[in-house]
Amino acid sequence: MADQHAPVPPTPHITTPITADLLRGALDLEHTAHGLQPHRLPAWARAQCADGQLAMVEAQPSGVRLVLRTRATTIELDTLRTKTAYQGAPPRPDGLYDLLVDGQLAGQASTTGGNVLTVDMATGSIETQTGPTGTVTFTGLDERDKDVEIWLPYSEITELVALRTDAPVEPVPPQKRRVWLHHGSSISHGSNAASPTTTWPALAASHGDAELVNLGLGGNALLDAFTARTLRDTPADLISVKIGINLVNADLMRLRAFAPAVHGFLDTIREGHPTTPLLVVSPIHCPIHEDTPGPSVPDLSDIDNDEVIFRAAGDPADRAAGKLTLNVIREELSRIVTQRATEDPHLHYLDGRALYGEADTADLPLPDQLHPDEATHRRIGERFAALAFGTGGAFAPQHP
């Protein structure tokens, strides 16, 4: 039975416009019919690629958060989400919103309603079902001045409709933390992490006391020139690029094209960041593609039980014809960074197997053969923080 004497949370009556000074982690904000939609690629970059998956993943706000200062005890956020579903599979879990108060996790919630994109993995076709706006509510917060962050779900396109509180809200002035700009694949995007603050980049940023801008783009770490120009033009104190797995997944290029493309990608970044610490990270261990080229293809035989397993469809013999495998990519990336570092002392290399290697597959195997689970995200994030932000790392603080 409910407690008849329990205090009723105050009704939020102050509506604050959601503006750029309340948001971090987004590179572009689109005004829609419903509100404000964060994007992680600028409009000019989005216009240069008509790929539907890229359009979906860059609009999924991994690392994007509302940041505000308030005495409010109740916060309501109206959003219109767009979820992705897969034909014939059970519904995917709702995305989580993480509430941080003064840097500490203080609550989690999901919303309702919204749109659904249903993907037929056999044909690639997509059906769209529209739905209403939902509300995320956090109550019981301490009535004191505090910094509040609301991290948006990394797996749901999110239009921000309205922000209501029971006390005034103001922006938090930029802190003196270093800005870390990271680009990578679906693993960096957050695939299968428990929540938006427990993707491995978010965890590493927390350990390294850095302000994260996450350009992890599921399936789209493909050495695209528009991504390089985006990295070039985005202010940052630290930059990392995790290269390799998506090139194999998509069977996108051959060895002849790969090395010059990496050089061009790094050249472009250096046009805007000539001396910024720049860390090139090779793929984590992925047994199916260590020595077998792509493409990666889904096995849909057990999709009714929400089990999708990926397999490598390439032939190891095709390496002789220039097809890429993870071992080939690691060797090339190491060679390229070593070559360039003779004239670029701020360029560094990290073998992804130091984050998750063959030995880790014994206790933390990749559930679908490609993506880490929640515990593995934590392991990768902690190891990256130690190797990159720790003593002697590429991102270690430099003291005069």
Rank of each mutant, 00 (worst) to 15 (best):
M1H: 09
A2I: 11
D3G: 10
A6L: 09
V8H: 06
P10M: 09
H13V: 14
T19M: 00
D21M: 04
L22H: 07
L22T: 03
L23N: 12
G25I: 03
L27A: 12
D28T: 03
E30T: 15
E30F: 04
T32H: 03
T32V: 06
L36G: 01
Q37T: 13
P42H: 09
A43M: 02
C49A: 14
C49Q: 06
A50N: 13
D51K: 12
Q53E: 03
G63N: 10
V64I: 07
V64M: 01
L68C: 07
T70F: 12
I75Q: 06
D78A: 10
T79I: 15
L80A: 03
L80Q: 07
T82K: 05
A85S: 13
A85K: 03
Q87V: 08
P90F: 08
P90D: 08
P90G: 03
R92Q: 15
P93K: 00
Y97I: 00
D102T: 12
G107Y: 05
S110W: 04
S110K: 08
G124P: 03
S125L: 07
Q129F: 00
G131P: 10
P132N: 14
T133W: 01
T137Y: 04
G140Y: 11
L141V: 10
E143C: 08
E149G: 09
I150V: 15
L152R: 00
S155E: 15
I157R: 15
E159W: 01
E159Y: 00
L160G: 07
A167E: 08
E170L: 02
P171A: 12
V172N: 10
P173Q: 10
Q175W: 00
R177E: 13
R178P: 00
S185K: 10
S186I: 04
H189Y: 04
T198R: 15
A202G: 12
H207S: 13
G208N: 02
A210V: 11
G219F: 14
G219T: 08
L223T: 08
D224N: 12
A236P: 09
D237Y: 06
V241T: 15
I243Q: 10
V248M: 11
V248I: 15
A250T: 13
L252F: 07
L252Y: 12
M253Y: 00
L255T: 09
A257G: 14
A261S: 15
F265S: 11
L266H: 05
L266Y: 08
P277A: 10
L278W: 08
V281R: 07
S282R: 05
I284Y: 03
H289I: 14
P295G: 09
L300Y: 10
S301G: 03
S301W: 10
S301Y: 12
S301C: 05
D306P: 01
E307C: 09
G322I: 08
V337T: 11
T338M: 06
Q339N: 09
T342C: 00
T342F: 05
D344K: 00
H346M: 05
H348D: 13
G352A: 06
R353Q: 12
L355T: 11
Y356W: 15
T361S: 15
A362E: 13
L366N: 12
L370Q: 06
L370E: 02
L370F: 02
E374Y: 02
E374F: 11
A375V: 01
T376C: 14
H377E: 07
G381D: 08
E382L: 05
R383Y: 13
A386P: 02
L387H: 02
L387M: 11
F389S: 02
G390M: 05
G393E: 05
G393W: 06
Q398Y: 01
